[in-house]
């Protein structure tokens, strides 16, 4: 790097530092424009990534959260959609968590959905299913959609998510609607993955959840059948194919 480049680098890094860290409320009008734009863009972006959370906490809280998050997580990819992963952790450590403990799970759920909804879908290689007829089940592995993620919650996050997503942005669900969701038992295990046409969210029971974890941990079909002898593999593989969860066997 030439000497000239270093001076350019210095000016640019210093300017970035001023925007991110210097208090401009009394100072430079121009710097304030850059700081306001950064903050408002961050807030808007976070509201797009976390639409349900935004409806739950309201605009003002999103304003403060985005401001705090800019300090905890620097944008670095050039695409605002990549920014915001640290929000669930930030909420967990915020004063919101005591009164609203479900928010961390909602935020986690939304981040996972956000990632899956932007991922590529891989169609099933149905020829590879023939590996099940093979002798070597110890060397046969199920490959799931790369976007497939699972999570747990003690709160009815799927119901809350659906309820808020069915409202327009400005609407807040009624107390009655919220109560209905809160009183509805969910399994507490969720699987989110990119599908052929939509990003799918499926509530599963404990046994299926553990089975999926086994697959992700790299267990062979033989090992899975050993560990989960009661699990109905045949019924599962049919439903997993319908849910677009499997890409191939290898």
């Amino acid at each position: 790097m030439s000497g000239g480049n270093i001076s350019v680098m210095d000016y640019q890094s210093q300017f970035l530092n001023e925007i991110y860290h210097v208090d401009s409320t009394l100072g430079d009008k121009g710097l304030q424009v850059y700081q306001n734009n950064l903050h408002m863009t961050a807030m808007l972006s976070l509201t797009v990534t976390y639409p349900v959370l935004a409806q739950m906490v309201g605009e003002q809280a999103m304003f403060v959260l985005s401001h705090r998050l800019l300090r905890a997580e620097l944008p670095e990819s050039g695409d605002w959609a990549d920014w915001g992963q640290q929000l669930p952790a930030l909420i967990r450590n915020s004063e919101l968590n005591a009164e609203h403990p479900y928010l961390v799970d909602i935020a986690q759920f939304e981040w996972v959905f956000h990632l899956a909804s932007r991922s590529q879908f891989h169609a099933l290689n149905s020829a590879s299913l023939q590996r099940l007829a093979d002798e070597a089940l110890e060397q046969t592995f199920i490959t799931l959609q790369p976007s497939l993620k699972y999570l747990r919650s003690s709160y009815p996050v799927h119901g809350l998510w659906r309820l808020h997503r069915s409202q327009t942005e400005q609407e807040v669900p009624s107390r009655q609607q919220l109560e209905n969701v809160m009183n509805h038992q969910e399994t507490g295990c969720y699987v989110i993955a990119q599908g052929a046409h939509n990003t799918n969210i499926v509530e599963v029971y404990e046994d299926e959840f553990n089975w999926l974890r086994g697959i992700s941990d790299g267990l062979s079909v033989a090992a899975l059948l050993d560990i989960f002898p009661a699990f109905d593999f045949a019924a599962w593989i049919a439903s997993a194919i319908q849910r677009d969860w499997i890409t191939h066997l290898e």
Partner: peptide, 16 residues
């Protein structure tokens, strides 16, 4: 800046 949840959290908080 105070972090106060409005929106549907107002009802949810009460319920919880």
């Amino acid at each position: 800046w105070k972090l106060v949840a409005k929106g549907s959290c107002e009802s949810m908080g009460g319920m919880l």
